[in-house]
Every structure is written in C-alpha cells, then in structure tokens.
C-alpha cells in the first residue's frame, strides 16, 4: 500500500524530481510533449502521493483507486510519477518512445505498471473513467476514479458527452481535473477556439466544481481533493489554472514547447533551475 503524505515540502521535492526525470527522458528520445507534461506534474504528485489508495506491489488490487491520464500526451509526467511510486525502475524512463517499450509515446493499457487505460486520442478518457466508476457503483466498491483532462480536450465534442454521463449518473466516486494551461498544439487557446468559461460550463452540466487560481499550489490541490471526496451525489471537477511548461523559465507559457522535447542545451538550463547537476 502506498504511504501517503500531506507534508508540503516532501511533495514539492517529489514534484521537482518528477520534472527532472521527465525532462531527461524527453531529451533522451528527442521527442514528446514538454509543456503539457510540466503543467501536470503538481497535480499528479498530489494524486499519487497524497490522495489515491493503491499498491504498486499489487497493481491489479480490485479495491484500488484508479487514475486515467485522459490527456495522454502528458505521458512523460505520468511515467515519471509511476516510476517514483515504484511501479517500475526509473531507468525504464530511458526507453521512452522506443519500439516495444512499455513506455510508448502515449499511454498503453498495462495494469502491471499502473497504466489503467489506453489514451492519447483526446475525448476518450473521461468516458472510460465513467465506465469504471459505474462498475464500482454496481459492485458496491468504494474505490474512486480520477481523470486528468487537458483544456484543449474540452474542444472535443465527445468530452461533453462524457461530462453529461458523469452528472446524469451521479458519479460522486469520480473526480475530473482539468489542467487549464491555456495552450494547445497550435498556440494560445484564446487565439484558436476559446473554451471559457470552463468552471461555469461544468456547473451548468451538473458538476460540483472548484477552480484553483494556482493549480500548482500543493496545499490548494490537497484541499480540493478532500472536498471532492466528501461531495455526494455529483461528480467533482477541479479546474486547475496552470502554467504550460511550469517549473522551467525557458518553457513557461511558450506554446512552442507543446510538442517539442528539450535540446541538450535547454536540458542543462532546466536541470540547473531545478537544482540538479546535468
């Protein structure tokens, strides 16, 4: 059973390590999504080390909470988190995006390493999460389901089909987190197809919503997840306002790094900022 913590400094340190590991992995394979991985790290850190009930030594434990990386392009952040949680050795991150590696460009379903669903094509993960949550209710299990969505993913019509299902089915064992970093592949979302207001939309669709001004603030995230757990009769959405590329100044709020890996030079700068020798 994973031992959870609410020690803010300890969690911040894990987030820092996840950032270091994912940037090294991205640089190693010279491709992948830097910006959206970095924006998700603090959310993932809190979910995996402060919120979820699971056991990396018994990955298919039926009563485990489930996490679905609906924004599958954030795979490097998920993989670095799973490695830190002990699902597989950190050295495995060197095989990111290599043929037949367990760590593919986008997550591929493999419970043994903590990947609960195949994602990468946007607009799938919340529906799958609903299915797992519905099955949990049917079986009278008390496990919870967490789904991390990108804000760009809210442009997919299928996402709203799923959002409707969650509230119609009163899935209070489900919590969706929107990584609201305001950038998508082609640039700033408000220059492409603005989806504001996000929180109001979830409220209108029958969800309980908490919007975090700073989606990187560990304590705020912990408090929001607490509120999600105690909410009954409705699914819970956390709209986490984040910074694309968070944690490394040269990547922050730069649309360019949506799908570009750090160069050797950029990695050196990043590791220095994160307090790690290259």
């Amino acid at each position: 059973m994973m031992e959870l913590t609410t020690d803010i400094e300890a969690l911040k340190d894990r987030a820092r390590n996840i950032r270091i590991d994912l940037l090294k992995a991205l640089n190693n394979c010279k491709s992948g999504h830097t910006g959206g991985s970095l924006s998700s790290v603090d959310i993932l850190t809190v979910i995996y080390f402060s919120v979820m009930r699971y056991d990396p030594a018994n990955p298919s434990w039926q009563d485990r909470d489930r996490f679905i990386m609906s924004k599958g392009h954030g795979a490097p952040a998920l993989y670095a988190t799973l490695a830190l949680a002990g699902y597989f050795p950190r050295e495995e991150l060197n095989n990111l995006r290599k043929p037949a590696s367990i760590l593919q460009g986008h997550p591929e379903y493999d419970v043994s390493i903590g990947i609960e669903a195949t994602t990468g094509s946007l607009g799938h993960g919340l529906s799958a999460s609903n299915g797992i949550a519905l099955a949990g209710k049917l079986d009278k299990k008390d496990y919870r389901v967490y789904a991390l969505l990108s804000d760009g993913e809210l442009q997919e019509g299928a996402t709203w089909e799923a959002i409707t299902t969650s509230s119609y089915r009163k899935l209070d064992n489900l919590c969706a987190i929107v990584d609201r970093n305001r950038f998508q592949n082609d640039g700033a979302m408000d220059k492409i197809k603005d989806i504001s207001p996000v929180a109001d939309k979830f409220v209108a669709f029958g969800w309980e919503v908490e919007e975090l001004e700073d989606g990187h603030d560990i304590q705020s995230l912990i408090n929001a997840f607490d509120r999600a757990k105690s909410t009954k009769g409705k699914p819970f959405a956390i709209i986490a306002n984040t910074i694309k590329g968070k944690g490394v100044s040269i990547f922050e709020n730069k649309g360019h790094y949506h799908g570009v890996a750090p160069s050797d030079e950029e990695l050196k700068i990043a590791l220095k900022e994160l307090g790690e020798a290259a």
């Binding site: 039926q62 379903y109 609960e116 669903a117 607009g123 799938h124 993960g125 529906s127 799958a128 999460s129 609903n130 299915g131 797992i132 949550a133 519905l134 099955a135 949990g136 079986d139 019509g157 299928a158 089909e161 799923a162 409707t164 299902t165």
Partner: peptide, 18 residues
C-alpha cells in the same frame, strides 16, 4: 443517450473494471 462515442469508451471502462 444519443452519444455513440461516449457509449463505446464507457463500455471500455466497464471492461477495464472486469
């Protein structure tokens, strides 16, 4: 409801849960 894509991925979720 009239949500075929949601239906298919929800069915996938049911299968994931056994």
């Amino acid at each position: 409801g009239v949500s075929e894509q949601d239906m298919m991925a929800t069915a996938a979720g049911f299968a994931l849960a056994g």
